[in-house]
Design a protein around this nucleic acid. Sequence first.
DNA 1: CAGATCTCAGCTATACTGAAATGC
DNA 2: CGCATTTCAGTATAGCTGAGATCT
Lengths: 156, 156
Amino acid sequence: VLGVSERAELTAAPERLWELPSWLLNRAARHATAEVAAAFEAAGASRQQFTVLTALTEGPASQATLGRRLGIDRSDIAAIVGELERGALIERRRDEDDRRRNVVTLTPAGRDALARLDRAVEAAQEQLLAPLAPHEREELARLLIRLLTAGERATR
Amino acid sequence: VLGVSERAELTAAPERLWELPSWLLNRAARHATAEVAAAFEAAGASRQQFTVLTALTEGPASQATLGRRLGIDRSDIAAIVGELERGALIERRRDEDDRRRNVVTLTPAGRDALARLDRAVEAAQEQLLAPLAPHEREELARLLIRLLTAGERATR
DNA sequence: CAGATCTCAGCTATACTGAAATGC
DNA sequence: CGCATTTCAGTATAGCTGAGATCT
């Protein structure tokens, strides 16, 4: 989150970069992360913990499934689930149908924590999108979704 | 850059995340970075080196100015300029008008390297934007620029 | 003196790799 | 056997902080 003076300097970035979608996306993502950061910090959770908790609202899942759904690496999921377990926000137990797997389940405490996180994250979205009119917000979301759903399929 | 199977799994991300602009922006930026990565790797340069070289096409600048213009930290700029100097893509000399400063200048070799990088990066943009029609690409750029120029000014 | 610039050491988060242990 | 899952150790990059040296 930058102040006015830094903003003035940033606008002085080379023309070429302002024409590069990949640069714009990275900039915007950094801005978005900065906006949301305060929400997570205040709640004592990380961005990754939030996404894992969110995924678990749709039901228990193995760590591998969580990783694939969220696009988070298997080894990182192991660490994140470990943190959440220490905070008693999730429960991790061996899947008896397939003993390679851990079944990860949201606890009531986890559900409460997520509810608080959700409100804070929602407020941050409002901050982030403040410069855009409602129809522009929808349009931005639509374009990003198309970039992701069509783009990541097409490549490789 | 994901394959078809991973894509199918990713679409299975929780509904809630697909509605979160900050999540979409992070995802899209990651996708964009992946697309551009090959371009930089093939040319043996980093994303940051590219942006610094690009900034220098608008003329010599001190490291502090580069940092402010590009939104890169002073300490990171020092390291990046050091790398570029070792590759003889830039020249770094003390500013005799203000001896605290280093004046960083693009060398002919640097200009050549940037020309090659630029072509590769441009091809990557094409890949990245493939799912979008021309007017959609413009609209996406417009919305991102508004988010950045209005958004980063408003906050704090 | 205050303040700017450059540099270095070190920190955190994110993303990823390789290998081992276990189980299907 | 091949393959999937979990876990750990380690790597790389981006972004950032603190402190010191130098200079205006």
